[in-house]
């Protein structure tokens, strides 16, 4: 019964999207995306690149959860730039009495590690790429007020300030501040343009950190990526970023970040193995208690 309704809703949605695409305001948003886009012919410049990413996973047991985090800084050759950070521990679900979900808790810890690695890697590399958005992170930081984590988190953000060579990269950005359309900016940019290029950086301030935001496309016919730099930069800087990254980009995404993502992830089989090694595999997990028989 509900299936039929769901499909009917999906059909309606399709209709709505089609109507939206033929509307005047949609054309306006596309026009604005086209206006802000600057075409650029890149020149290959060899730079020392480091990519930062983290992964985490957890298993819930009665009264606590086991979690594992790893954060890494790697070069495109897969060599580690800085010693990775790993953590395996158990916590009660009400971490420090905060009511913070395991996901948010681990994400925050992992981001602290990422910021620390990025800060240290910036002294060793020309360009440091971090998977994610610093602005999004700083927007959520107040929720950490509930736990002692807030101070720790901001302590790790502080060294990033004015670091021109640290770039936060988002593939699926939801930012709407540039085009101001119904959907994220990157949606309209990808519809309106297909060549290598960029948008002029716009600087904003969050939690006492100046963040410059721009979009770049590193290879033709690929999706644009959203970039944030915790410093005030200009369009010449943006061009230099394209020069440094375009030759090793795969489908418009920096290859080093792909490797970092792969090397940092904590898949289910790994967390299961850690659970075994920690002697917890005999305990029923939260999911198992739902299984009958």
């Amino acid at each position: 019964m509900t299936l039929k309704q769901l499909f009917e809703r999906a059909k309606l949605l399709k209709q709505k999207l089609q109507e939206e695409e033929s509307s005047e305001r949609y054309r306006e948003w596309l026009g604005r995306a086209k206006d802000v886009w600057r075409h650029y012919q890149p020149k290959e410049v060899k730079k020392k690149i480091a990519a930062i990413d983290s992964g985490w996973n957890y298993r819930t047991y009665c009264g606590f959860y086991l979690y594992a985090i790893r954060a890494i800084a790697v070069a495109p050759s897969s060599e580690t730039v800085i010693e990775p950070v790993v953590e395996v521990d158990i916590l009660p679900m009400e971490a420090e009495g905060s009511g913070l979900s395991p996901e948010l808790y681990m994400k925050s810890i992992a981001e602290c590690y990422e910021h620390d690695l990025a800060s240290r890697a910036s002294n060793l590399s020309d360009v440091v790429l971090v998977d994610g958005s610093i602005l999004a992170r700083l927007s959520e930081v107040r929720t950490l007020n509930r736990v002692k984590l807030f101070r720790e988190y901001t302590a790790y953000v502080r060294p990033l300030r004015n670091s021109e060579n640290i770039l936060f990269i988002s593939k699926y950005s939801q930012d709407r501040s540039l085009v101001g359309g119904a959907l994220g900016d990157v949606y309209y940019i990808n519809k309106a343009t297909r060549g290598i290029g960029y948008t002029e950086p716009i600087t904003t301030e969050k939690e006492e950190v100046n963040v410059s935001v721009f979009y770049v496309r590193l290879s033709e016919n690929s999706d644009a990526i959203h970039v944030e730099v915790p410093a005030i930069i200009d369009s010449e800087y943006v061009k230099s970023v394209i020069d440094a990254l375009y030759s090793t980009a795969v489908k418009g995404y920096p290859y080093a970040l792909m490797i970092a993502h792969e090397m940092a992830s904590v898949p289910n089989d790994l967390i299961d193995m850690l659970s075994e090694v920690a002697g917890l595999s005999v305990l029923p997990t939260a999911r198992e208690v739902l299984e009958v028989g």
Partner: peptide
């Protein structure tokens, strides 16, 4: 990879990563 252009890009990226 699923298309030729991505394959060219992936080839260049793979060259610098012995683990690939």
């Amino acid at each position: 990879v699923g298309d030729y252009i991505t394959a060219i890009e992936a080839r260049e990226a793979s060259k610098v990563n012995p683990r690939d």
